[in-house]
């Protein structure tokens, strides 16, 4: 069953000059058809300005389509009556954790979402506890968010979304501002959400290593879906990715370069274990 579906989705920005006259129209999303199966882990890649964030903002109705339709859990995002249901069903996490945390205490921050949905107090506390445990931040529930590292803050942001019991979480470059261990913590938490809690994940990132475990990868360019497939299929096309201003994980690149030097290796190696096995038998 599909949890998110777009049909011929188009989004246009109208550019205006200082007097407010229309200078031109930019098509940020151009006839995108996307189906995301419930419970899957989807990655969206694409260079800066390729339209991936604009696409993501349609999934919880921050943006309305110019043309075409977006359904979230069967609801049309253009239907104003369904707005709050959609935002509860599809949560979003952004790049900068400092812009997303509002509470003075971690547990208060996580409770903010369900409180606004009118969840009874008893249940709010239950949800806060579950969500913080899911991202491994329960011991920090009494902390001030100011005292946390970037990776920890970002996990609190994810818990805040999780407490609203969404079916799908969209993460727009959640690790761009983090150090290596912060990145690892966040990705581990995201994978756990997907595999243990069964939440559908849509991850947007510029770090290729983060998505080797995704079920499906979409690569965007000029507002369209330029490539699509499993990580192995997509990362086998090294030159094509480079022409789209992207990259492959270091291990994939190493295998690709070795193959060019005449070593016999399979295409699209994604992990160190695979490469070691291919080389050492």
């Amino acid at each position: 069953m599909s949890i998110v579906k777009t049909k011929d989705l188009v989004f246009e920005y109208i550019r205006r000059d200082e007097e407010g006259n229309v200078e031109g129209i930019t098509t940020a999303v151009d006839h995108v058809n996307l189906t995301v199966r419930e419970g899957s882990f989807i990655a969206i890649l694409g260079h800066n300005g390729s339209g991936k964030s604009t696409l993501a903002k349609h999934i919880n109705a921050i943006l309305d389509p110019t043309e075409g339709t977006v359904w979230v859990d069967g609801m049309d995002t253009a239907d104003p009556e369904k707005l709050w249901d959609i935002r509860q069903r599809a949560g979003m996490v952004f790049q900068n954790p400092d812009n997303q945390i509002i509470g003075q205490v971690v547990e208060e921050d996580v409770g903010f979402g369900p409180e606004n949905m009118g969840v009874p107090t008893e249940e709010i506390w239950q949800r806060v506890e579950e969500s913080l445990r899911a991202v491994g931040m329960y011991e920090y529930r009494k902390y001030s968010p100011n005292k946390l590292s970037g990776g920890q803050k970002q996990r609190v942001s994810i818990a805040g979304v999780l407490a609203m019991h969404p079916k799908v979480i969209v993460l727009d470059e959640p690790t761009a501002m983090l150090d290596p261990s912060g990145r690892k913590e966040v990705i581990r938490a995201v994978r756990a959400l997907n595999q243990v809690e069964g939440v559908t994940v849509i991850l947007i990132t510029h770090y290729m290593e983060e998505i080797v475990h995704a079920d499906q990868v979409f690569v965007m360019d000029q507002g369209r879906i330029a490539m699509e497939g499993t990580p192995r299929e997509v990362f086998s096309r090294v030159e094509e990715l480079k022409s789209l201003r992207l990259d492959v994980p270091q291990v994939t690149l190493l295998a690709y370069e070795l193959k060019k030097r005449g070593l016999e290796l399979p295409d699209g190696i994604l992990t160190t274990e695979e490469l070691v096995k291919a080389l050492c038998g």
Binding site: H47, S50, E173, A176, H206, R245
Partner: peptide
Amino acid sequence: TAGLDPRGR
């Protein structure tokens, strides 16, 4: 290079 795509980086 924070937030830039691989080529931009």
